[in-house]
Amino acid sequence: MNIFRLAGDMTHLLSVLVLLLKIHTIKSCAGISLKTQELYAVVFATRYLDIFTSYISPYNTMMKLIFLGSSFSIVWYMRYHKIVRRSYDKDQDTFRPYILMLPCLILALLINEKFTFKEISTSFFLFVMWTFSLYLEAVAILPQLVMLQRTRNIDNLTGQYVFLLGAYRALYILNWIYRYFTEEHFVHWITWISGLVQTLLYADFFYYYFQSWKNNVKLQLPA
């Protein structure tokens, strides 16, 4: 564990808490894309399949449970909570999740660190699911970014949520650089490339977020 990775995990945790705070206290999910939240639930479900089989540390297990619990409860709130669901604007949230999930699944079958298609074993299945979750996480924010461009006035909590979500993966990139130089044979191209793509997708959001902070004006993304 290094400072970049810890900062990344804490930023990720904070982003989830900001979103839960918004939904739980003001009982509103205005401006939040349910599609992105569902994709994130799938990301965590497919990434943490081995939560009970491969134990790393108390911290690792606790964080996995928090991310699984929070992502599924956010989806539950937005779908079934009688007050929250009323503030969900499904006409603005039109991105079709399958056009993201299918290519990621095919890509995970073709490009993963095992490459051996022949041994259809559980470990191969877990590996493909884990790789799928990496690719899916890289693009999971797209429905939310599209929705932000359609929602004229983005409220502060939503802006902070997206900013923290983007910042966490940027910190992970610093973590990978640090681990590359401090641990021998720590090379994971698949993780690095998908993490880089993920962070680059936030580039224009970061730009407008910074501009709105610097000029102290409301955050707005150009349509």
């Binding site: 990775r5 995990d9 990720h12 081995d50 491969s54 790393i56 690792n60 964080m63 996995k64 991310f67 660190e113 590996f127 884990w130 992970y172 973590n175 641990e183 044979h185 720590f186 994971h188 993780t191």
Partner: peptide, 10 residues
Amino acid sequence: EKEKDAHDEL
């Protein structure tokens, strides 16, 4: 063992 360290991150 190498795979392990790939999955030691969240």
